[in-house]
Nucleic acid binder design. Sequence first.
DNA 1: AATGAATGAGGTTTCATTCAT
DNA 2: CATGAATGAAACCTCATTCAT
Lengths: 187, 187, 187, 187
Amino acid sequence: MKEKMTEHSIRLFEKKGFSETSITDIVESIGVTKGTFYYYFTSKEQLLMDIHLAYIDELLNEQAKIISTPGKTCKDILFDIVHMLLKSIKTKKSSATVFFREMKNLSNEKLAQILPKRDEFRSKIEQVLICGIESGELRANLDASIISFAILGVANWSYHWFDPEGEKNEREVADIFMGMILHGIEA
Amino acid sequence: MKEKMTEHSIRLFEKKGFSETSITDIVESIGVTKGTFYYYFTSKEQLLMDIHLAYIDELLNEQAKIISTPGKTCKDILFDIVHMLLKSIKTKKSSATVFFREMKNLSNEKLAQILPKRDEFRSKIEQVLICGIESGELRANLDASIISFAILGVANWSYHWFDPEGEKNEREVADIFMGMILHGIEA
Amino acid sequence: MKEKMTEHSIRLFEKKGFSETSITDIVESIGVTKGTFYYYFTSKEQLLMDIHLAYIDELLNEQAKIISTPGKTCKDILFDIVHMLLKSIKTKKSSATVFFREMKNLSNEKLAQILPKRDEFRSKIEQVLICGIESGELRANLDASIISFAILGVANWSYHWFDPEGEKNEREVADIFMGMILHGIEA
Amino acid sequence: MKEKMTEHSIRLFEKKGFSETSITDIVESIGVTKGTFYYYFTSKEQLLMDIHLAYIDELLNEQAKIISTPGKTCKDILFDIVHMLLKSIKTKKSSATVFFREMKNLSNEKLAQILPKRDEFRSKIEQVLICGIESGELRANLDASIISFAILGVANWSYHWFDPEGEKNEREVADIFMGMILHGIEA
DNA sequence: AATGAATGAGGTTTCATTCAT
DNA sequence: CATGAATGAAACCTCATTCAT
């Protein structure tokens, strides 16, 4: 039941926004009453926090798996991370949207739990870049920090437009993205 | 007075979010009464619409100026657009945040005015890419559409993290971004 | 201008109700601004009072003319009064509706000016009835007071349904009404 | 509680008018909070609609009982209907006032539910008249439609003045009314 | 004679939350 | 586990009115 509520909430939050979705909206969407909601969640914010945590923890988890897999070049790792982000936008578009858009609805204390994880994710990318520079795979004069933001921008921005049912699937988009990130677009 | 109200609203919307900012918050921030707000705006949504229109129209305007300036290569144009986006995030960070985050608070009719403009901006970038491909400046095998989203992602994502007072200014960040976009990061 | 404003107000009050019609509605309907309204009227209530006074004074005036015309039987007078009420509903339907429906929006002091006039109108009808009873024109056992209310009811209720453009004109309806009032409907 | 709220609302609407009565007025009159009101009613208009429906349905119901009772002449039926209307004005004066005066505060969709019922009530009276004409009880040359409005006017107008505590009770007034309606007032 | 900026009180409605059952 | 009645604070918005110009 808690799971079911969370699912429905994510969908509603994506469509209408967190503030614009009322507890009534949520409980009516699954045919129970408000009391039931407060049996499973202590507050609306708690529910939002659950969604955030589930999303970022999953991302960090996937990222860790990618990084720790032996026998990969840094470029392989970067590709896998970008690909994984697109896959997550494909399968969890609603969660992604809520995650990127509704963060400000968390209280400062809750934010203090989420923000470090967000930065950890980016920071791991930066480390991969540095590792690649040191190993000679990547250009020596890169600003690893700014480039990590650039790569995140390329991948994450997809939640604004990427359509999993569209012409290109997430693998193809990841290929195109990595083509540009690695080799640029200049002739 | 209307201008003043809009300014303060943008700042508040950025900090607290559109839905979380009340008319009371706005009018108290400048020491007038609610009636005054409704003397100048027909609704809260109208104010949000004004902000959106002002932002996107300004972007389109700047973009048009860049594109129509004679004697530029396509790469110059791309650089100028990315640079311009970063400048606009620097000087109008609040507006940018509101623009990218609070779009769902517009009614469908209002959205129908904004979305085409947003896509026009992206589409212009795609045209520059195509033009560059045809002239031989850019690689022939690019997917101009997806790449236009990638470039937008790199630039626009900055509103999440770019600090105009930080270590790098908008010119330097634009240089780094264009370095990656044009030449890639591979050694 | 004052006249024009009153006319438009009556029409708006009829259609939307007094409370539901704002000063803005009124001034916009004639293309001036709110200041202008307050140049001519001291308050919205004052305007309503003007409408009430104009209506009831006109009715009393017409009634007085009918009663004072020499050489009429009481039945003639009753007919003329009923006919006059129907004519007034025909030509001043909006005023009539406002008069009968929006009285409660007058303050007690204003009501104290209107109510005696309303009762004076009815009372005059009662006097005509009494006069007719004494002269032998009307049945001796009538309750003149209650019958005066009955006659008023027959005539005034017309504002709910009488359509001057309809099948019967006000003269024909007055004839039918008086037929019933004088001779009843029994075979 | 819902019943209690409706009762108090009717009383307040009668005294101050629908628009002039605020939700605050209503809930304060029974010592609950505004939230409670909206727990039972979806809107203020819904409450007004409830009142209208309850009133007209009750009238139609009573009318149907009168008409379907066997062994009555048409004149009996007419008397019973007029008497019933006066009784309803006696016992439900507030509802009657609200019903006759506040109809314009219903939206068009709601009106479309009420108006047919109102006309059904009048139409039933017309049918009784026609039946009486055909049976020879009533004069052959009556305009049944207009006369039905006249009878309704006589009876319904009472809500403006009838005082159940006054000199005459509703039975006596009904007798006087029917005396005029059946036999007229002429000597 | 008319305007337009500003007010402030009050309107209807929404909603997260509580709690006895 | 779940309900349903109730709360109360706060939301957006309207509007009669004032007043300097």
